[in-house]
Design a protein around this nucleic acid. Structure first.
Lengths: 248, 248
DNA sequence: GGTCAACCTTGACCCAGATCAAGGTCCGGT
DNA sequence: ACCGGACCTTGATCTGGGTCAAGGTTGACC
């Protein structure tokens, strides 16, 4: 892993697109200098595996661009995605040598990697860094719990609608925008990867996409591009209550 | 909430049963003094609701004894448990006023509560506290991801076996013991709560328990007490690979 | 020691989503 | 422009677990 395709370009933190959302969001200039000293960029092609479960990993890092996934596989091949990493999300676990999940690039991905050992030291005496990491971890835990409700209790159609909502919110509305109508975005996953996300088979995913299309909840332009004419309409299909207070 | 049943007893941290496993595990004497100043104990009866989702919560805390659950409910009543809190587990989220999930005591529970605001301040200048909280949060995230695999991909029988394994490990073998044979423990949940944990109906849970009993994987003494004659036998039913390396 | 309520079990039947199978579409390479 | 492979769709059928229904157990409280 981590050979061949890595790009060695070094970018200024000050011009970094995820500067204000990633682990480093609240670091001051001095801390950025320290991070800069232990960072390097690595690029991965769509479909490439970034790390295998059980492998030892000497870095942690942030997704600068693209989409990566975390997933688990059972011996007989059943697969469940357990993390969807978009720009600014954090990869790896400090104080742990080996990674527990397969990490895969589903689009071309650029990672900003920090050498793990020195990063752990920085974490200890940079509260700006550790506080942000705690906050991001708590957010991920909340997301995981929403995901558990989806996996345990939602119908296939609700699962699809929920997934589209999540993607629409993070991909479309440029930055934490109020979701408007006529949102358009590209699905960052194949039908099979969506199935792994949702705990379904790829056939069921395909049927549900067709169903939502047939009922006018979404339009498709090609296989991957989705247009949502009325966001509320899509939200109503998710099974989530009250059309979500947080979007007024 | 939080009235009537609360006990006001104050216990010495030095004799606290969860002293070395909870958020405060790595705090020194000075930090304990500070925590002590903002703590109070609260007791809840089995079945009591500790907090409702959406409610504002002015404390965070640790489970001292007993079992509590976090769960989400959809408008039509479908319910999914998203957290199972045993002794030493942490409740609440610093820097967030409202709780996102229903918190319920499933057995009698004692909580060691810290007033939220001062706890947040302590977190900032006590790395021993914040590092431990980060570590616990990362552990919970890992647990949530295992749980996602269970919900998304395991069969009903595998779900039951996995649940029994989790409980056996945390309830029985006193402290992080190697699981031996003839483990016995009490289920801390009703069949209905188990169903909410596993994304099943209570009837299916009941049938699967009967199935495991019929096949000699477990014995029941009454409805709640479980005896596992061979731990490996139970593990083999979980669907998890390699009978788990970590238990040699 | 009888009653009631909470909890659990089991059976019969049904259905959402899995499985099996057969194409269709799109795109990159020659 | 054709070919091959990756990806997607749709149909037919099957089945694990849900739903509905009818008791059984247990234990707290008169």
């Amino acid at each position: 892993m981590l050979d061949g395709t890595m790009s060695l370009a070094k970018t200024e933190c000050s011009t970094c697109p995820i500067r204000h959302r990633a682990v480093c969001a609240r670091c001051g200039p001095e801390e950025l200098v320290q991070l800069d000293a232990i960072k390097s960029y690595r690029s991965f092609k769509a479909g490439e595996t970034i790390a295998w479960a059980g492998e030892s990993l000497d870095f942690v890092g942030s997704v600068v661009s693209g989409v990566a996934t975390l997933s688990q596989t059972m011996e007989d091949g059943r697969r469940q995605m357990v993390g969807l990493l978009l720009a600014s999300d954090f990869v790896g676990r400090p104080n742990r040598e080996t990674i527990t999940y397969d990490v895969t690039a589903t689009t071309d991905v650029v990672l900003c990697c920090f050498r793990r050992k020195p990063f752990q030291l920085l974490l200890v005496d940079s509260p700006n860094l550790s506080e942000r990491l705690l906050e991001m971890t708590l957010d991920e835990l909340d997301a995981a719990r929403e995901w558990m409700l989806l996996l345990g209790r939602k119908t296939a159609r609700e699962k699809l609608a929920s997934f589209l909502c999540i993607i629409a919110r993070r991909e479309a509305g440029p930055n934490a925008e109020i979701p408007h109508d006529n949102i358009a975005f590209d699905l960052p996953l194949t039908r099979e990867a969506m199935a792994d996300y949702l705990g379904l088979t790829l056939e069921t995913v395909s049927r549900q996409v067709s169903g939502l299309k047939r009922d006018g909840v979404v339009r498709l332009e090609g296989k991957r591009r989705v247009v949502v004419p009325e966001f509320d309409r899509l939200m109503a299909e998710t099974g989530d209550e009250g059309h979500e207070l947080a979007w007024a």
